[in-house]
């Protein structure tokens, strides 16, 4: 890269101006700008933080001893397990469904496009909570579920009430809803890949399936993975909705305990802390994966730790990073 030699630049400038400049007139010796507002904001935040800690320690209503007593109780652990299992299953359904719907949305078949569009419109347009309650009460609408030839003979039939357990209603409600959101994420990722990539694959005699698998999807992943991480974190929290259909997830378990013991706040805290633990682990994993997929990109997302670190003065004005030598 042709970085002009520092001394050379100075010398040329001297020739032009015919007046010697002190060597300190160089960007690398510049005085940094001060940030008084940042310091003010910092002090404000520190005062608020001190107040918060003071309250956490001195307010007995938090009932920290009760929190400690229930934190790893067996029933809470089981509730946490239900929450995690539900998150995983609903996300898997959502991702598989999302990829299928996204491929339908960009396919050449107008019928498939319309059908996928209608699905996404319905599931994004109604609240998840309503969908959950709806699936839970499916038997009121369809007392029997049967499989067979449409309008013809049935092969197997079930009583809806025995099939749609709270767990299945929760899986359907969360998973089908998630599919609609994932479809939009996957579609955005697929469309972000340059059209020339597809043409290059076609010119090499690749089939559409192979182009999708080997060329488009690997490149779309960079745009799909980060928002999918957000969806997983949202899903952990969305599972709390299933407490309304009496599925013993983390929140429902905490509620059923405090309904007996009246230790409402401590048990809600147990749930809150567990949700935070799970989402924190996921946040950490997400930033790790994001950095993996951003490899070689100019703009690395800066982490919180980068933000905290005091930057060495010399890099305050970094040199232009080396790009492709075009």
């Amino acid at each position: 890269m042709a970085v002009p030699d520092k001394a050379g630049v100075v010398r040329r400038r001297q020739d032009a101006a015919a007046a010697p400049e002190p060597a300190t007139l160089d960007v690398s010796n510049a005085t940094r700008r001060q940030h008084p507002i940042r310091w003010l904001a910092g002090i404000l935040v520190a005062v608020l933080l001190a107040q918060l800690i003071n309250m956490l320690v001195t307010n007995d209503n938090f009932g920290w001893s009760v929190v400690a007593q229930w934190f790893t109780a067996e029933s809470i652990m089981r509730g946490l397990g239900v929450t995690l299992v539900l998150t995983v299953i609903a996300m898997v359904i959502g991702i598989v469904l999302g990829v299928l719907l996204a491929v339908c949305r960009i396919s050449g078949n107008p019928l498939l496009r319309a059908a996928a569009g209608a699905y996404i419109w319905f599931f994004r347009g109604t609240p998840t909570l309503v969908q959950l309650i709806f699936f839970y009460n499916l038997s009121a609408l369809l007392p029997r579920i049967s499989f067979g030839i449409p309008f013809g003979p049935e092969f197997v039939a079930f009583d809806t009430n025995t099939v749609i357990t709270p767990l299945l209603a929760a899986i359907l409600g969360l998973g089908l809803n998630e599919g609609a959101y994932m479809a939009e994420i996957v579609r955005g990722g697929l469309l972000s890949v340059d059209h020339g990539q597809r043409e290059a694959g076609q010119a090499l005699g690749m089939t559409d399936r192979r182009i999708m698998k080997r060329v488009i999807l690997p490149q779309a992943m960079r745009f799909i993975v980060p928002p999918t991480g957000n969806q997983v974190i949202s899903m952990v929290k969305a599972t709390a909705l299933v407490s309304v259909i009496a599925l013993s997830d983390l929140l429902y378990t905490a509620q059923s305990i405090y309904n007996r013991t009246f230790e409402t706040i401590p048990l809600l805290l147990v749930a809150v802390i567990w949700y935070l633990v799970v989402t924190s682990v996921l946040y950490f994993g997400q930033s790790f994966i994001e950095r993996h997929y951003a490899r070689g990109d100019r703009q690395q997302p800066s982490s919180f730790w980068d933000f905290l670190r005091i930057r060495p003065k010399r890099n305050a004005f970094p040199a232009v990073t080396e790009g492709p030598s075009t």
Binding site: D194, G196, E199, A200, Q202, A203, L204, M206, R214
Partner: peptide, 21 residues
């Protein structure tokens, strides 16, 4: 489409924008 893909194998193409993967 798959048969068209098969027949394209005999025709190489170089693009203005390179289009490398």
């Amino acid at each position: 489409p798959d048969e068209i893909a098969r027949r394209r194998r005999d025709i190489g193409m170089v693009f203005q924008q390179f289009n490398l993967f």
